[in-house]
Structures are given as structure tokens and as C-alpha cells.
Amino acid sequence: MNRRNFVTRGAAGMAGMLLSSPLTGSAAPPPGEAATRSAPPSFDLMKEVMKYRKIDVHAHIYWTDDSPETQLDYGRRLGIEKQVISRYLDVMPGTPEQFRKFNDLTIKAIKKYPGQLLGGFVLNPVYQKESLEEIKRCTDAGMIGPGELYYQVKINDPKYFPIIEKLIDLKMIIHSHAECQLGVGGYRMKYNGYKQPNTSIPEDFVDIARRYPEGIFQYAHIGMGGDWEYECKLFREYPNIYVDTSGSNNAENMIDFAVEHLGEDRLFFASDNSYYQGVGRVLSANLTDRQKQKIFFDNYNNLLKKGGRGVD
């Protein structure tokens, strides 16, 4: 008999005795005791959902036949007026042929649903000339700026500088994937997060935001599962870093914490296709209606307007 078996069997014997010997000295509320229980007033959640205009600033489309209709259907269900979509470049090495193909998918979608979808392009600064050409091609096709730039190159890599300068000239919001997880992208690398080595991390955003204070940077998905407390604390002093609230992890208090550290103007509502979490976490935040409206719609739209791309 090992130690665990001994402990388990010994305890079982004791419990057997307990079963035949009722516990004494109970202070439990007697079963069925009448206690005052007034039902709380009902809460009309869907009325609350539909109260706010919404732009989902970080969403994606897929290669499947049901896309983007499935994404649009979630939007209708939750009162999301517009979605900024891209087909993120989740392939390596991310050649010009690949990013053009990915952007073609987005162009096709925004042409089909111009009232609901705003397009974001992807590129790979390793191919600088082709990336700059792609910015022009996609802008001419009606896209509003970069979609979620991905993990081929860190956002503060010098290869990005001419790209970022072009985006600043065009008054576009510079949106990049980033993570804050143990063992990813240079953060606490004694762990292994099994992610691409060039994944951007919060420090990379701070670096590029300091280099280009006139740039407007969108740090992707503080709700993706990274350490949002770390992210918000690090970004506090960098007013040109905005955070999008998307991701599948709808942690309680994340939005409140972000507003406390960044202010109510530096958050963008987003889902990253986790639509329920995206809406739920903002609605449940301890904020005023006006603050929620700014996050859901106004903050992002005000920046779009600076580039002549506002949606109202």
C-alpha cells in the first residue's frame, strides 16, 4: 500500500463512522428555512446591447464559403454596425503573392458589403517595395488602413520604418498583432510559449510609438489572453498607443482597468471574432453610458475622421 492509498483508505474508514454518526452542533440554516428573498428587477440585456452604436475594429474573414456572412450575422445579432475586417497573414514566409491573395479576399468582401465592412490590408515589410505598392493598391480599392499586421516581423523592426512612415502620411491607424505571454516574442523566454519568434510584445509597441509620436498605433486584443494588466500599465505614458479590447478571454474588470490606466479615449471596441465576449465585457464594465459609447464607436471613428474616413 502506498502512502496515498493509506491516507485515502484511512479517511474512508473514518467517514464510514461519520455516516452512522450524525454531525452535532450544526449551525447551518435549517433546510427550508424561510428567508426574505425578493426577486431582483429584470434586466433587459438586449435593449442594453442595442443602445450603443458599434464599430468592431478588429475582426477577420475566412476562406470558407460561409464567410463573411457568418461574421455579418453575428454583427446583426449584437447590433454591430461596422466591422473592420482583414484576413491576417498566418502563413510563413508571407510572400507578396500570399499577402496579395489574402487582401483580395478582403477586397471582395468589402465590395460585396460596403455598408457593413471596412477593409484592412496585410503586408510583410520583408518585401518593402511590394508592401508599399500593396498599400496603394488596397487604398485605391477602398481599404481604410492596415488590418492586423502579423508575426513575420516585429512592429519596431527597422524594416517597418518606411511602411509606418507611409501609413502616417496617409493618416491611417497602425494595427498590429501582439502578445504578452510567458515565453513569447522575448518576454520571459525561459518559458516556451511555442509561438513565432518575431511576435510583437508590448515593449516593441512602446519602442515604435516613441520613435513615431505622430503615429497612431492600435495594440491588438488585450483580451486575447495576454497579461492585460502588464499591457495597460506599460502603455500608460504613451498616448499614441490605443488598445483594442478584442479576444476570447473576457476577463472581469479588464475594461475598467484599461480605462483607469489609459483613459476612456484610448480603448477601441473589438471582437477578433469573439463577438459575445467583445460586447459582454464592455457592457459589464463599471462605466457610464457615455464612456461605453466612446469605446464602442466614437473613439475609433474620431480617428478615422482625421484621415477623412469617418463612417458618419
Binding site: R77, N250, A251, E252, N253, M254, G280, R281
Partner: peptide, 18 residues
């Protein structure tokens, strides 16, 4: 799953059903 997750997302999945 409160207070680890926000209070409304689990409710929203029900209330938004058509």
C-alpha cells in the same frame, strides 16, 4: 464564471438567441 470572467457574456449567449 464570475468574478474571473465578466458578468454578462454568459447571459448574452442566451438572450441573443433568435
Amino acid at each position: 464564471h464570475a468574478p474571473i470572467l465578466d458578468y454578462l457574456t454568459g447571459m448574452l449567449r442566451i438572450e441573443s438567441l433568435r
